[in-house]
């Protein structure tokens, strides 16, 4: 009784691949991706800050021009008020000093023709 000769062969389809690689769990995006995302987000934020600053300057200009347009009205009104007050102050002075000889009502304290606003409330 003899066993027929048979060459020992690999199984059909070949051997299974040997698992020699390390199989580690996925730990998130790579450093480059995180850095890139951070860079993009920061760039967008800075862009918005810049545009916001531009807008802020425009808002400031808007406010300044609104005030510039109102200056003449307020100034005119204040002028009329001051003229009335100066007139009344002069009349009051005339009345008070009428018994003083040689008194010049409405005399100036400054040796100048330039207009100097009163330093006290009149």
């Amino acid at each position: 009784m003899s066993v027929p000769y048979r060459q020992d062969m690999p199984p059909t389809g070949g051997f299974e691949a040997i698992r020699y690689k390390r199989y580690l769990p996925y730990k998130g995006p790579s450093g480059a991706v995180i850095f890139g995302a951070f860079f993009l987000v920061s760039a967008y934020g800075l862009y918005r800050v810049g545009m916001g600053n531009r807008e802020k300057r425009e808002l400031l200009r808007e406010k300044q021009w609104a005030r510039i347009h109102l200056v003449p009205i307020l100034m005119a009104e204040a002028d009329r008020n001051l003229v009335r007050r100066e007139y009344v102050a002069l009349e009051r002075e005339k009345e008070l000093m009428k018994n003083v000889k040689g008194w010049q009502p409405g005399g100036k304290v400054y040796h100048s023709d330039k207009y100097i606003p009163p330093s006290i409330q009149i």
Binding site: P72, A76, E77, D79, V83, E86, Y115
Partner: peptide
């Protein structure tokens, strides 16, 4: 009015212009 005020700051100098304003 502002040009007038530039000439003189005296309150009685620009009353006419001020009324117009």
């Amino acid at each position: 009015f502002m040009l007038c005020k530039n000439e003189s700051r005296a309150p009685e100098h620009c009353l006419q212009e001020g009324r117009k304003v």
